[in-house]
Amino acid sequence: MKILIPIKRVIDFNVRIRVKKDGSGVETANVKMSMNPFCEIAVEEAVRIKEAGKAEEIIAVAIGGRQCQDILRTALAMGADRAILIETDVEVQPLAIAKLLKATIEKESPGLAILGKQAIDGDNNQTGQMLSALLGWSQAAFASNIEFTDTGLEVTREVDGGLETIAIKLPAVVTTDLRLNEPRYVKLPNIMKARKKPLDVMTPQELGVDVAPSIDVLDIAEPPARAAGVKVADVNELVDKLRNEAKVI
Protein backbone atom coordinates (compact mmCIF):
# COMPACT_ATOMS: atom_id res chain seq x y z
CA MET A 1 0.00 0.00 0.00
CA LYS A 2 1.07 3.56 -0.72
CA ILE A 3 0.39 6.40 1.68
CA LEU A 4 -0.04 9.95 0.47
CA ILE A 5 0.85 12.75 2.86
CA PRO A 6 -0.14 16.22 1.72
CA ILE A 7 1.83 18.85 3.67
CA LYS A 8 1.70 22.64 3.92
CA ARG A 9 4.34 25.32 4.33
CA VAL A 10 3.33 27.89 6.96
CA ILE A 11 4.92 30.62 9.07
CA ASP A 12 6.91 28.90 11.83
CA PHE A 13 4.89 28.53 15.01
CA ASN A 14 7.55 30.42 16.98
CA VAL A 15 7.32 33.56 14.85
CA ARG A 16 5.20 36.49 15.97
CA ILE A 17 2.76 37.11 13.14
CA ARG A 18 2.64 40.66 11.73
CA VAL A 19 -0.28 41.89 9.68
CA LYS A 20 0.60 43.86 6.52
CA LYS A 21 -0.15 47.57 6.83
CA ASP A 22 -2.80 47.49 4.09
CA GLY A 23 -4.69 44.61 5.73
CA SER A 24 -4.27 42.41 2.65
CA GLY A 25 -2.58 39.58 4.52
CA VAL A 26 0.24 38.78 6.90
CA GLU A 27 3.91 39.57 6.39
CA THR A 28 5.81 36.61 4.99
CA ALA A 29 8.92 38.32 3.56
CA ASN A 30 12.04 37.32 5.53
CA VAL A 31 9.91 35.30 7.91
CA LYS A 32 10.93 31.81 8.96
CA MET A 33 8.70 29.19 7.38
CA SER A 34 8.27 25.55 8.42
CA MET A 35 6.12 22.52 7.85
CA ASN A 36 2.71 22.87 9.50
CA PRO A 37 3.00 21.01 12.84
CA PHE A 38 -0.10 18.86 12.19
CA CYS A 39 1.42 17.85 8.84
CA GLU A 40 4.61 16.82 10.62
CA ILE A 41 2.47 14.51 12.75
CA ALA A 42 0.98 13.08 9.54
CA VAL A 43 4.46 12.42 8.13
CA GLU A 44 5.55 10.77 11.35
CA GLU A 45 2.48 8.53 11.41
CA ALA A 46 3.03 7.45 7.81
CA VAL A 47 6.68 6.65 8.54
CA ARG A 48 5.69 4.59 11.59
CA ILE A 49 3.12 2.68 9.53
CA LYS A 50 5.78 1.93 6.92
CA GLU A 51 8.30 0.92 9.61
CA ALA A 52 5.68 -1.47 11.00
CA GLY A 53 5.57 -3.11 7.56
CA LYS A 54 2.04 -1.99 6.70
CA ALA A 55 2.94 0.31 3.82
CA GLU A 56 5.52 0.16 1.04
CA GLU A 57 5.80 3.72 -0.13
CA ILE A 58 5.20 7.20 1.26
CA ILE A 59 4.62 10.09 -1.12
CA ALA A 60 4.70 13.65 0.22
CA VAL A 61 2.81 16.32 -1.70
CA ALA A 62 2.97 20.09 -1.29
CA ILE A 63 1.11 22.77 -3.19
CA GLY A 64 2.58 26.25 -3.59
CA GLY A 65 5.68 28.10 -4.76
CA ARG A 66 9.06 26.60 -5.53
CA GLN A 67 10.15 27.33 -1.95
CA CYS A 68 7.84 24.53 -0.74
CA GLN A 69 10.64 22.16 -1.73
CA ASP A 70 12.15 22.76 1.71
CA ILE A 71 9.30 21.12 3.60
CA LEU A 72 9.22 18.31 1.05
CA ARG A 73 12.91 17.68 1.71
CA THR A 74 12.13 17.66 5.43
CA ALA A 75 9.43 15.05 4.84
CA LEU A 76 11.91 13.02 2.78
CA ALA A 77 14.47 13.32 5.59
CA MET A 78 11.86 12.10 8.07
CA GLY A 79 11.29 8.99 5.93
CA ALA A 80 9.02 9.74 2.96
CA ASP A 81 10.21 7.98 -0.21
CA ARG A 82 9.46 10.58 -2.85
CA ALA A 83 7.86 13.96 -3.18
CA ILE A 84 5.63 15.88 -5.54
CA LEU A 85 5.44 19.65 -5.71
CA ILE A 86 2.35 21.02 -7.40
CA GLU A 87 3.77 24.38 -8.29
CA THR A 88 1.61 27.47 -8.37
CA ASP A 89 1.90 31.08 -7.25
CA VAL A 90 -1.80 31.29 -6.53
CA GLU A 91 -2.77 31.13 -2.88
CA VAL A 92 -4.78 27.95 -3.24
CA GLN A 93 -7.89 27.59 -1.09
CA PRO A 94 -9.07 24.35 0.57
CA LEU A 95 -11.53 23.20 -2.13
CA ALA A 96 -8.95 23.66 -4.88
CA ILE A 97 -6.32 21.91 -2.71
CA ALA A 98 -8.72 19.00 -2.23
CA LYS A 99 -9.29 18.84 -6.00
CA LEU A 100 -5.55 18.87 -6.70
CA LEU A 101 -5.04 16.10 -4.15
CA LYS A 102 -7.89 14.09 -5.66
CA ALA A 103 -6.24 14.35 -9.08
CA THR A 104 -2.88 13.30 -7.56
CA ILE A 105 -4.50 10.36 -5.77
CA GLU A 106 -6.11 9.20 -9.00
CA LYS A 107 -2.65 9.13 -10.58
CA GLU A 108 -0.83 7.52 -7.66
CA SER A 109 -3.61 5.31 -6.23
CA PRO A 110 -2.55 5.22 -2.57
CA GLY A 111 -4.67 3.27 -0.07
CA LEU A 112 -4.49 5.94 2.59
CA ALA A 113 -4.07 9.69 2.77
CA ILE A 114 -2.98 11.23 6.06
CA LEU A 115 -3.32 15.00 6.47
CA GLY A 116 -2.94 17.46 9.28
CA LYS A 117 -6.39 18.29 10.67
CA GLN A 118 -5.73 21.94 9.85
CA ALA A 119 -2.91 24.33 9.03
CA ILE A 120 -1.89 26.80 11.72
CA ASP A 121 -2.12 29.73 9.31
CA GLY A 122 -5.67 29.54 7.92
CA ASP A 123 -7.10 27.21 10.60
CA ASN A 124 -9.67 26.14 8.01
CA ASN A 125 -9.94 22.49 8.98
CA GLN A 126 -11.55 21.68 5.64
CA THR A 127 -9.15 20.00 3.22
CA GLY A 128 -9.23 16.46 4.63
CA GLN A 129 -13.01 16.35 4.84
CA MET A 130 -13.44 17.83 1.35
CA LEU A 131 -10.95 15.36 -0.07
CA SER A 132 -12.77 12.37 1.37
CA ALA A 133 -16.08 13.67 0.02
CA LEU A 134 -14.63 14.26 -3.46
CA LEU A 135 -13.12 10.77 -3.53
CA GLY A 136 -15.99 9.00 -1.82
CA TRP A 137 -13.46 7.54 0.64
CA SER A 138 -13.95 6.77 4.33
CA GLN A 139 -13.05 9.58 6.65
CA ALA A 140 -11.62 9.81 10.15
CA ALA A 141 -10.79 13.33 11.26
CA PHE A 142 -8.89 14.39 14.45
CA ALA A 143 -7.16 11.05 14.92
CA SER A 144 -5.28 10.45 18.16
CA ASN A 145 -4.64 6.78 17.44
CA ILE A 146 -4.65 4.61 14.34
CA GLU A 147 -4.71 0.81 14.40
CA PHE A 148 -4.76 -1.54 11.44
CA THR A 149 -7.44 -4.26 11.49
CA ASP A 150 -8.37 -7.04 9.04
CA THR A 151 -11.02 -4.88 7.46
CA GLY A 152 -9.40 -1.47 7.53
CA LEU A 153 -8.55 0.94 10.32
CA GLU A 154 -9.67 1.56 13.85
CA VAL A 155 -9.24 5.23 14.53
CA THR A 156 -9.57 6.96 17.86
CA ARG A 157 -10.83 10.50 17.43
CA GLU A 158 -10.62 13.39 19.82
CA VAL A 159 -14.17 14.67 20.09
CA ASP A 160 -15.80 17.08 22.49
CA GLY A 161 -15.93 15.48 25.89
CA GLY A 162 -13.80 12.43 25.16
CA LEU A 163 -12.49 9.91 22.72
CA GLU A 164 -14.48 8.17 20.03
CA THR A 165 -13.23 5.03 18.31
CA ILE A 166 -14.52 4.21 14.86
CA ALA A 167 -13.85 1.44 12.36
CA ILE A 168 -13.38 2.52 8.77
CA LYS A 169 -12.61 0.76 5.54
CA LEU A 170 -9.72 1.53 3.27
CA PRO A 171 -9.10 3.52 1.19
CA ALA A 172 -9.48 6.35 3.67
CA VAL A 173 -8.60 9.91 4.52
CA VAL A 174 -7.35 10.41 8.07
CA THR A 175 -6.55 13.78 9.62
CA THR A 176 -4.20 14.05 12.56
CA ASP A 177 -4.71 15.61 15.96
CA LEU A 178 -1.96 16.84 18.21
CA ARG A 179 -1.65 13.73 20.38
CA LEU A 180 -1.38 11.15 17.60
CA ASN A 181 2.40 11.01 17.95
CA GLU A 182 5.49 13.07 18.61
CA PRO A 183 7.36 13.68 15.34
CA ARG A 184 10.98 12.55 15.28
CA TYR A 185 13.89 14.92 14.86
CA VAL A 186 15.54 14.84 11.50
CA LYS A 187 18.93 13.11 11.54
CA LEU A 188 21.85 14.45 9.56
CA PRO A 189 22.47 11.28 7.50
CA ASN A 190 18.78 11.38 6.53
CA ILE A 191 19.06 15.02 5.42
CA MET A 192 21.85 13.80 3.14
CA LYS A 193 19.76 10.88 1.83
CA ALA A 194 16.80 13.19 1.22
CA ARG A 195 18.87 15.12 -1.32
CA LYS A 196 18.91 12.07 -3.55
CA LYS A 197 15.26 11.09 -3.28
CA PRO A 198 13.05 12.02 -6.24
CA LEU A 199 11.09 15.26 -6.14
CA ASP A 200 8.77 15.76 -9.12
CA VAL A 201 7.25 19.07 -10.05
CA MET A 202 3.89 19.43 -11.80
CA THR A 203 1.35 22.17 -12.27
CA PRO A 204 -2.39 22.50 -11.54
CA GLN A 205 -2.93 22.76 -15.31
CA GLU A 206 -1.33 19.37 -15.83
CA LEU A 207 -3.75 17.95 -13.28
CA GLY A 208 -6.65 19.73 -14.93
CA VAL A 209 -7.65 21.70 -11.85
CA ASP A 210 -8.71 25.34 -11.76
CA VAL A 211 -7.14 26.89 -8.67
CA ALA A 212 -8.63 30.39 -8.99
CA PRO A 213 -9.77 31.50 -5.51
CA SER A 214 -13.48 31.31 -4.83
CA ILE A 215 -13.37 33.29 -1.61
CA ASP A 216 -12.32 36.95 -1.43
CA VAL A 217 -10.49 38.04 1.71
CA LEU A 218 -11.79 41.48 2.61
CA ASP A 219 -9.54 42.41 5.49
CA ILE A 220 -6.99 41.00 7.90
CA ALA A 221 -6.44 42.80 11.21
CA GLU A 222 -4.38 42.32 14.36
CA PRO A 223 -6.36 40.99 17.32
CA PRO A 224 -7.06 43.77 19.84
CA ALA A 225 -4.30 44.23 22.41
CA ARG A 226 -5.04 42.49 25.68
CA ALA A 227 -5.99 44.83 28.49
CA ALA A 228 -3.70 44.87 31.51
CA GLY A 229 -4.53 42.51 34.39
CA VAL A 230 -5.74 43.58 37.83
CA LYS A 231 -4.19 42.57 41.14
CA VAL A 232 -6.59 41.42 43.81
CA ALA A 233 -5.94 41.46 47.54
CA ASP A 234 -7.45 38.09 48.44
CA VAL A 235 -9.61 35.20 47.32
CA ASN A 236 -12.82 36.93 48.40
CA GLU A 237 -12.12 39.89 46.17
CA LEU A 238 -11.28 37.55 43.30
CA VAL A 239 -14.54 35.63 43.68
CA ASP A 240 -16.44 38.89 43.98
CA LYS A 241 -14.93 40.24 40.77
CA LEU A 242 -15.49 37.01 38.88
CA ARG A 243 -19.13 36.95 39.98
CA ASN A 244 -20.13 40.61 39.76
CA GLU A 245 -17.77 42.18 37.20
CA ALA A 246 -16.79 39.41 34.82
CA LYS A 247 -20.06 37.53 35.56
CA VAL A 248 -18.42 34.20 34.78
CA ILE A 249 -19.36 32.32 37.95
Partner: peptide, 15 residues
Protein backbone atom coordinates in the same frame (compact mmCIF):
# COMPACT_ATOMS: atom_id res chain seq x y z
CA UNK B 1 20.92 26.88 0.93
CA UNK B 2 17.88 24.79 1.72
CA UNK B 3 20.20 22.13 3.14
CA UNK B 4 21.99 24.66 5.34
CA UNK B 5 18.68 25.80 6.77
CA UNK B 6 17.63 22.19 7.29
CA UNK B 7 20.84 21.57 9.26
CA UNK B 8 20.30 24.60 11.48
CA UNK B 9 16.64 23.71 12.05
CA UNK B 10 17.35 20.10 12.89
CA UNK B 11 20.16 21.02 15.32
CA UNK B 12 17.98 23.65 16.97
CA UNK B 13 15.34 20.99 17.61
CA UNK B 14 17.81 18.71 19.39
CA UNK B 15 19.07 21.67 21.45
Amino acid sequence: TEEHLAIQDAVAKVC
